[in-house]
């Protein structure tokens, strides 16, 4: 996006609206909001050119708290509404705020089609693996056997893997972050915004009311180094307390290796954001108990869509309209 000249320097404060925040105190949503408000001033985009569009759910209250243009719409449809907005107003900076129920359940169809179309928007999926606003039913990302209000004996349903789903839908930017990692989150948001095409960021977000601790293994000191894998482009895949574990590819099979004793760093899998096949393998770590959960940019490639060919309002003559009205064949009655 072209940075416009002569815009007054904005601060995080400028992006705060006058609305009182209604999330439960301590909700992960508030942490994400904060990072967004911190990020936006650095982008150099005038406030009036920014639009937040959300659906329904706890996270979807987000636009009310941003002092930009915004729409809080209906369940599952933020992606579809943002599609019409971006198609007609490519000059705008459009952010879609959605949740696991909103994007992957009721709005699943629009979500995959937006990624397929690869419009130049940012999609932030706040994943808390639960329905919060409706008070605690299992969501399409709840873990199998999870006990919730609507699954007192545990749900039989397998969760969606949002990363593979997005890659399968043809997404050109796929990343994951987490509410508690402020710096990481801001970097990912920034990279998503810099990407031309649809950027999809899944953000693990703690709902401490209905699903507390769903992601604590990625935030607790004791477990995070072993459970989470922070990806960096061009760097080997390392994790563990002292980065003592690495991942290497044996054919197409990933393998965990002990870097300290067995393997040299040179043999490890070097992360390449542009490699779609490896991105798919990375996304599948989700399905295993053994591999750490990847965070960061899993995949990024340049969009194939003719992006942002903003169609300026054409000057059309009266003759052109008269010609249109007259159709192919017309005649005069005297």
């Amino acid at each position: 996006m072209e940075v416009e000249k002569n815009i007054p320097t904005l601060t995080a404060k400028d992006f705060e609206s006058d609305q009182e925040i209604r999330w439960c105190p301590g909700c992960g949503d508030a942490a994400i909001l904060k990072q967004m408000q911190n990020l936006l001033p650095s982008l150099g985009i005038p406030k009036e050119k920014i639009v937040f569009v959300s659906g329904i759910g706890c996270s979807s209250r987000f636009p009310y708290y941003m002092n930009t243009y915004g729409m809080h719409t209906i369940h599952g449809r933020a992606t579809a509404i943002a599609t019409g907005l971006k198609l007609t107003r490519p000059d705008l900076n459009v952010w879609i705020i959605t949740g696991d129920g909103d994007a992957l359940s009721i709005g699943g169809n629009h979500f995959i089609h937006l990624l397929r179309r690869d419009l130049n928007v940012n999609i932030l999926l706040f994943n808390n693996q639960i329905y919060g606003l409706t008070k605690g039913q299992f969501s399409p990302t709840s873990t199998q056997h999870q006990v919730t209000k609507s699954s007192p004996f545990g749900t039989d349903d397998k969760p969606f893997n949002p990363m593979t789903l997005a890659l399968g839908a043809g997404a050109s930017f796929v990343a994951r972050s987490i509410d508690r990692e402020a710096k990481h989150l801001q970097e990912i948001l920034k990279a998503g915004q810099a990407h031309t095409g649809a950027s999809f960021v899944e953000i693990y977000q703690n709902c401490h009311i209905f699903n507390d601790g769903a992601f604590s293994m990625y935030t607790d000191r004791a477990s995070r180094k072993n459970a989470a894998l922070f990806l960096e482009h061009g760097k080997p895949l390392l994790f563990g307390e002292e980065n003592q574990f690495g991942i290497k590819l044996d054919g197409h099979q990933p393998k965990i290796v002990d870097v300290k004793h067995e393997e040299s760093l040179n043999d490890l899998w070097i992360h390449d954001e542009s490699d779609g096949i490896k991105a798919n393998i990375l996304s599948l770590f989700f399905e295993t108990e053994t591999f750490p959960r990847p965070f960061g940019i899993i995949f990024q490639k340049s969009s194939k869509r003719d992006i942002d060919q903003s169609q300026p309002y054409k000057e059309i003559s009266v003759e052109q309209y008269n010609h249109l009205l007259g159709g192919k064949e017309n005649w005069t009655v005297l």
């Binding site: 579809a80 971006k86 249109l324």
Partner: peptide, 27 residues
Amino acid sequence: TFNVQTFQAEDEIAAICSAIGASFGGS
């Protein structure tokens, strides 16, 4: 030729929702 954009949406709901988005944008 004209200031018309058409959008064949993924379903009927997306069609009207995208229209609402465009309307918010001034179309």
